[in-house]
């Protein structure tokens, strides 16, 4: 079989629809997982009673179980418990919960570099613990944790391909679905690999811009 560019050109609209869904699901999940990360890390660092133990349990659970099992649990299991989410939101929820656990650890690592001195200084100026976290600790932690947060976000983007398993028509789904009908395996997988690569590089580019901006105060 030869590499058939005309075939790819034909399938391009379908691939772009898949790409658009991949971008939507990933972007939403990245934003939500960072939010989860910030909240979870705050709870851990401020040692909110009881809740911090729940956060620890959540992180351990997510990190020690396969993403696919979590995804199936959310898609097929939750309806049995009375929560039926659409394909899209099942996907967003599973990616958010998965990446959120890692973001908690990433941000917590960053928070540990924010010393006791800054905490005392913030408190001595009358800031509440919450404002200290929001205005001082979180921005500093994000700066330090940015490389690992980016890694998690890239993994999230790549792992969005798992969502094909529940039938969400994202990029990988489109490829597998077309392959199962047209058997243009080489063309399709090559195409989606190139697209994923472009997505990851774009994400890295924006992250490095953000990192540059966040590091401005530290360049003298």
């Amino acid at each position: 079989m030869e590499f058939d560019l005309a075939y790819l050109a034909n399938q391009w609209p379908a691939l772009m629809r898949g790409l658009w869904l991949t971008i939507q699901v990933s972007a939403l999940s990245i934003v939500m997982s960072v939010t989860v990360g910030l909240c979870g890390a705050a709870i851990r660092v401020l040692q909110v009673p009881v809740v911090d133990k729940i956060v620890v349990g959540y992180v351990e659970f997510i990190r020690n179980t396969p993403l696919l099992a979590q995804l199936f649990f959310i898609f097929y299991g939750l309806p049995g418990l009375g929560l039926k989410l659409s394909l899209f939101w099942s996907g967003v929820l599973s990616l958010t919960l998965w990446a959120g656990a890692y973001q908690i650890e990433n941000i917590r690592g960053g928070l540990e570099t924010v010393g006791k001195g800054l905490r005392e200084a913030a408190f001595s100026l009358g800031l509440s613990p919450w404002r200290f976290f929001r205005l001082i600790a979180a921005p500093m932690a994000v700066r330090v944790g940015l490389p690992s947060m980016l890694n998690t976000s890239i993994s999230l983007l790549k792992n969005s391909s798992y969502l094909q398993a529940i039938g969400l028509a994202e990029l990988t789904f489109v490829a597998i679905d077309r392959i199962s009908m047209d058997f243009r395996t080489v063309e399709m997988f090559a195409a989606i690999c190139v697209i994923y690569l472009a997505l990851v590089l774009t994400l890295s580019f924006f992250a490095s811009r953000l990192e540059y901006r966040l590091n401005t105060p530290f360049r003298t």
């Binding site: 097929y76 394909l87 094909q164 398993a165 529940i166 039938g167 028509a169 789904f173 679905d177």
Partner: peptide, 11 residues
Amino acid sequence: LRLNTASDALQ
């Protein structure tokens, strides 16, 4: 709605 296995589909 295109799924991977008959059991997924039935579920």
